[in-house]
């Protein structure tokens, strides 16, 4: 009897994550109905975000600015993070002396464990002033948010890339060395092609992380509803707009917030699925 109960409860728990996912999707979709109905797909391209002066429950809302802000800050982060993460993975798998691998790996993993709000604090008070004195602007803005976002996703990207580079059989590398290949040639022509799937997967997965990152960006992007004209300009992103304005919104504006959350959720879902199932494959057989 106990056995059956045990099995049934296990099954119930297993289906739970399925229902949570369906639940998130349907709740966001339901609450976003008003906004979807009102603005449709024009929501994606409209820059105006304004509640009506007389009635706060209505107004015109478009998601273009936060959508562009999210894409730009993520792009900057990816451009900076990708080469650095590749470098770290190469260092850990091909260059570092055996005694160095462990401490460096731990340091990189601790970097990943630091809560995002800490990156925000540090970025706002220590990093933003440096950006301001080097590149001008107000300190907070796209560039600052992008760089700190890069620092946050580097460890994550480096760890997955390292794991997939570690799967390259030694015999393949040794054969190339025996032909007189340099270390770089072995990395470029043997390691990289062999672990290509894992590397691309790690980049896309990190992209998914960066898109949804909230707190660090909330400190650093400036939270201004404007299209940035310079790279140092403040703007906003979907998670930041939600973090700062969600709880005060009402009526149609609230519904538009749910619409933005739905867009973010669907985009992340697609990106993560592509990375996990197309490039990284299933880890466990």
């Amino acid at each position: 009897m106990g056995g059956r109960l045990f099995k049934n409860f296990s099954f119930f728990s297993a289906t739970l994550s399925f229902f949570i996912l369906i639940g998130i999707f349907s709740i966001l979709f339901t609450y976003a109905q008003d906004s979807i109905h009102q603005f449709g797909f024009d929501f994606l391209s409209s820059e105006i975000w304004e509640a009506d002066e007389d009635d706060e429950d209505i107004g015109i809302f478009g998601g273009f600015i936060p959508i562009v802000g999210t894409m730009l800050s993520t792009t900057i982060a990816m451009i900076i993070a990708t080469p650095l993460a590749m470098g770290i993975a190469i260092f850990l798998t091909e260059i570092a002396h055996k005694t160095l691998i462990k401490p460096v790996s731990i340091a990189i993993e601790l970097l990943a464990a630091i809560p995002s709000i800490i990156y925000g604090m540090w970025g706002l008070f220590y990093f933003a002033p440096i950006i301001q004195s080097t590149f001008g602007g107000q300190g907070v803005g796209l560039l600052t948010a992008g760089i700190v976002l890069a620092i946050m996703i580097i460890p994550f990207m480096a760890a997955i890339t390292r794991d997939s580079m570690n799967t390259v059989p030694d015999v393949l590398k040794e054969s190339a060395y025996a032909m007189g290949a340099t270390k770089f040639e072995v990395i470029k022509d043997v390691v990289m092609p062999y672990s290509k799937g894992g590397i691309i997967g790690s980049i896309i997965l990190a992209l998914g992380r960066a898109l949804g990152e909230t707190m660090a960006v909330a400190f650093l992007i400036g939270s201004v509803m404007q299209i940035p004209s310079k790279i140092t300009d403040p703007t906003t992103s979907i998670p930041v707009l939600l973090a700062n304005n969600f709880s005060e919104a009402q009526g149609l504006e609230m519904s538009s917030m749910y619409y933005l959350a739905l867009i973010l959720f669907i985009v992340s879902f697609i990106i993560i699925s592509v990375a996990k199932f197309y490039f990284l494959g299933k880890k466990v057989k």
Binding site: S17, I24, L28, P239, S247, A261, F265, F269, K282
Partner: peptide, 27 residues
């Protein structure tokens, strides 16, 4: 079914945390 659940739970692991906040707010 197991592989579907495994995949969905993998995706959930990387879902944006702010969206989970929005979901729980509504519920």
């Amino acid at each position: 079914l197991a592989s579907i659940i495994r995949n969905l739970s993998d995706v959930m692991m990387s879902a944006p945390s702010i969206v989970i906040g929005v979901f729980v707010y509504a519920l």
